[in-house]
Nucleic acid binder design. Structure first.
Lengths: 176, 176
DNA sequence: CACCATTATTGGACAATGCATATATAGGTG
DNA sequence: CACCTATATATGCATTGTCCAATAATGGTG
């Protein structure tokens, strides 16, 4: 549901093609929202159909044509409406915790391996987040907020790593 | 996908009806996995169809009949297989961050309200998690792991609250 | 007595997403 | 020349899950 608005939000900053949009999503909002390529195109098609975005074909003779999409007046209005609408957070889904909850059916070594593999995964995520270039602070609210979303991801990754370390320690103690 | 196995996991501990299962899910694994009532029944039906669970009808004359579900041998085997299978974490979806990312389209007061409303929400979540009774430590690995999943939620909630406090402070500074 | 909640299960409609695949062209590599 | 990668868009299909409503019996509240 939020993808529509994330797309609209990006288009409000800069008009672009589906192909380009997919890349921007991966690199700039990818840490809190992702989308499949087909989903990006479908979302764009939906926005155009509802008059929230317009499309303009740019003919390229060396490559397939570009469909550059632009947020319309109504699109921007819809975006603002969404921003002001009450926040309702969907329930958390944590497959890793779901597994851990029943993990004592496995030998302790396997439980340890589960925790270790999670540690590797989160470690990589953290590294990826920290590698994202932080734009120079320009004192603007927009800039600050975008940096904050990044730091949110970093903070949670660190929390997860801390928790993993503690849990691994407890596992050692429980099986000593 | 994990719901199948969460259900199987619960049934492996204790056989129960769909109605009961829904309540157990809400209270014991609800902090990392939730399911709609209809989804619970559909999942049970699917498990029975695949021979991973069996159902036994308990006739009740004062109420509708109960369908008590039990994990079968094959069900337990499937559960163990899932536990040992490689972990692949689905991408994060954070509608709140998606909103915050574009929130500078709104007046500062609205941004502050967005952060405050998130703070209230996470505060309530944290209170709910802390209210869940921690079973007395029995030295077992299973017990320790289940407490750990709870503490995972608590740790992340606290991290979120810290981050919110920092972000609100920055917002004040940026708009002073 | 009307209404509502609780217990208990089931089914239809439908939105969101992902995976696979198709189409078309250009440029680079072995 | 065969193959792969990048550019660029699009469609079909399956899965997962939510919302809504139906069915059915009982017990409590105003």
């Amino acid at each position: 549901m939020s993808l529509r608005y994330a797309v609209l939000g990006i288009l409000s900053i800069q008009p672009m093609s589906g192909y380009e949009l997919k890349k921007v999503i991966d690199h700039s909002v990818g840490h809190f929202w992702t989308a499949d390529q087909s989903q990006v195109y479908r979302t764009l098609a939906g926005l155009v159909e509802e008059g929230l975005a317009s499309r303009r074909t740019v003919v390229q003779d060396d490559r397939p044509n570009l469909h550059v999409h632009n947020a319309t007046e109504r699109g921007l209005a819809a975006l603002d409406e969404w921003l002001a609408s009450p926040l309702r957070t969907p329930p958390t889904r944590e497959p890793f915790l779901a597994r851990l909850f029943f993990a004592d059916r496995m030998p302790t070594e396997a439980v340890r391996e589960l925790l270790e593999s999670r540690r590797r995964e989160v470690g990589e995520q953290l590294a990826a987040l920290e590698a994202i270039a932080v734009p120079p602070a320009d004192g603007g609210v927009g800039n600050m907020l975008r940096v904050a979303t990044l730091e949110n991801g970093i903070a949670h990754a660190k929390t997860e790593l801390d928790w993993l370390a503690t849990t691994l320690r407890r596992l050692d103690r429980a099986t000593a």
